[in-house]
């Protein structure tokens, strides 16, 4: 099999796609945001429950490709219990990792397990998939009232 493809679709990504974490609506969520990429059809909602400055609970639902769904799943796992500021900082690091130039290094220590998404930057047409949930989360955290799209 093509090496780049294995790099992109690592087992952990396949597993998150098959059994996503925190994949459920949250009827009592304090914050909800919707992310939709109309051209490709990826469509998610991200739910947040904040307690003071801390993300007490986070979940998502909707549909999309393996990259968008696993990224969303890993995001919810990474952000539970984090402060707003930490969430904002992680968003920035992930954004940098996904949109860096092909071949350029990134600081893996800052993103933890999410480093598994590093290979996405080799597939420019798929960066929008991996980043959709993150931008949606940010809209839930810092609402502007807009529907999110990364296309």
């Amino acid at each position: 099999m093509n090496g780049d493809i294995r790099e992109l679709y690592q087992q952990m990504i396949i597993d998150h796609n098959k059994n996503p974490k925190n994949f459920r609506p949250m009827p009592d969520a304090g914050r909800v945001a919707e992310g939709y990429n109309p051209l490709c059809g990826d469509h998610f909602k991200v739910y947040l429950k904040l307690e003071g400055d801390v993300i007490r609970d986070i979940s998502f639902d909707g549909s999309g490709c393996a990259i968008s769904k696993s990224s969303a799943s890993m995001m919810t796992a990474a952000l539970k219990g984090k402060t707003r500021e930490e969430a904002r900082a992680l968003f920035e690091e992930v954004r940098k990792m996904l949109s860096r130039e092909i071949g350029k290094p990134f600081d893996a220590t800052k993103v933890g397990k999410l480093a598994i998404l590093a290979g996405v930057c080799e597939f420019p047409s798929r960066v929008k998939c991996a980043s959709l949930a993150w931008h949606t989360m940010l809209e839930a955290l810092e609402p502007t009232g807009k529907q999110v799209s990364t296309e």
Binding site: I5, Y9, A66, I67, F123, S125
Partner: peptide, 15 residues
């Protein structure tokens, strides 16, 4: 199966 069209597209593209 469960494979999303965009994932299929990417894998085919590399071929």
């Amino acid at each position: 199966g469960e494979a999303h069209a965009h994932d299929i597209g990417t894998i085919l593209d590399r071929q």
